[in-house]
Simulated assay, not measured.
Amino acid sequence: MSYGRSGRYEIPSDGTISGALVAALLASLTFAELIAATGHLEAIPALYGLEDSVNNWGFVVGHGFVGAVAFAAGLTRAANHRSAPAPLAAALRSPFLGGCFGVAYGTLCWLVGIAHGVPLLVQVTGGTMAVPCQHGASLLALVGYGAVLGAWYPLVRTAVDDRGRSRRWR
């Protein structure tokens, strides 16, 4: 007889969904603003061959949403695991710890996506680019993105879930 956890899907709480959406919006707008401030807003759509993109902001914010959903899902799943370390489990309620994990996530996205992924993509398409690519502006933008994402996700998640609990006990 096995005593492992079942493979059933658990529906995320309202706070998890709200936290992910609000944090995704704020972090994506922060990311787009930081990229625009460095003058590289057009670079992200250009990676897909969209040099004449009408709405670069929308494209960049869409990228941010995809990354934010992945972060929220991964953090929630890892923090809810029964053998999660205490700081990881507390990151779902602490903006500081969430922000720390967000900065780590932004740095990891930069290492994988910008430092190594973009040069490999350029080489595959016939161009030349040094590996790793050391693009400081994108590192700054992704660290800022991660900090905002990681801090706002537990704030909104906790506020919505606590509000729902207080309504049930009235």
Rank of each mutant, 00 (worst) to 15 (best):
L142Y: 02
Y145M: 00
N80R: 13
L26G: 13
R8W: 09
V118E: 01
L50N: 07
R168F: 06
A73E: 00
G64C: 06
A24R: 11
G58Q: 13
L21F: 15
A104R: 13
I11L: 11
W110V: 01
V156P: 00
C109L: 12
W152N: 08
V122H: 10
G164P: 12
T125G: 07
R165N: 09
A32V: 09
A137H: 07
H81A: 14
V22I: 15
Q123S: 08
G62P: 11
V66T: 13
S138D: 07
G117R: 04
N80C: 12
I11R: 12
E10Y: 05
E10W: 02
S138C: 08
Q134P: 09
G49F: 10
G99K: 01
V22F: 07
E51S: 15
R5Y: 15
S138H: 09
A32L: 08
A89Y: 00
A91L: 02
V124D: 04
Y105F: 15
F65N: 05
R165C: 02
R8C: 10
G49A: 07
V69Y: 04
A141I: 01
R77H: 08
I11F: 10
M1Q: 11
G64K: 01
A89V: 01
L121R: 11
Y153S: 07
E51V: 11
V156S: 00
Y105Q: 12
